[in-house]
């Protein structure tokens, strides 16, 4: 019997559940490795070679190389792990979050200062805005 996952109909949101965690295990553990300075240096020196040390899927590696966080999340990544890539690149959490929204850094920052993204129209997939 399938498990109840009522969060599948929330727009623009991927819940990091046990299934996603299983898919993303090596991707997320690669991210954890970037908490060590020597690993950050090795990764920066040759990203592809460093990624090839991990049993990640090609899709996961391409997502990391492109710094496409939405693609990484779809492949099982979790934002708190993926944030280690951003830290390695010298990005703030706001820059990382904004990068997934299709907005420019400035547009995203201004939206937050103006009170953030409204909940209205953002509760259900297909909901009228």
């Amino acid at each position: 019997m399938a498990l109840d996952k009522p969060y599948k109909d929330i727009p623009g949101t991927t819940i990091f559940d046990a299934e996603q965690s299983r898919k993303g295990y090596h991707l997320n553990q690669f991210c954890m490795s970037l908490m060590k300075a020597e690993n950050r240096a090795r990764f920066k020196a040759d990203e592809r070679a460093y990624l090839d040390e991990w049993p990640m899927t090609e899709e996961q590696k391409q997502g990391v190389l492109a710094r496409d966080l939405n693609r990484c999340i779809a492949a099982g990544g979790n934002i708190y792990f993926l944030a280690k890539i951003g830290a390695t690149d010298g990005k703030s959490f706001q820059q990382m979050a904004g990068s997934m929204t299709g907005m420019s850094e400035e547009e995203y920052r201004d939206m937050m200062i103006a009170g953030g993204r409204s909940i209205e129209g953002n509760r259900y997939v297909g909901e009228k805005k």
Partner: peptide, 17 residues
């Protein structure tokens, strides 16, 4: 309190909630 850090819905805030 309310916040979302991931995906196209990142930046969500819900004052009423």
């Amino acid at each position: 309190m309310s916040h979302q850090l991931q995906g196209p819905r990142a930046g969500l805030i819900n004052r009423k909630f």
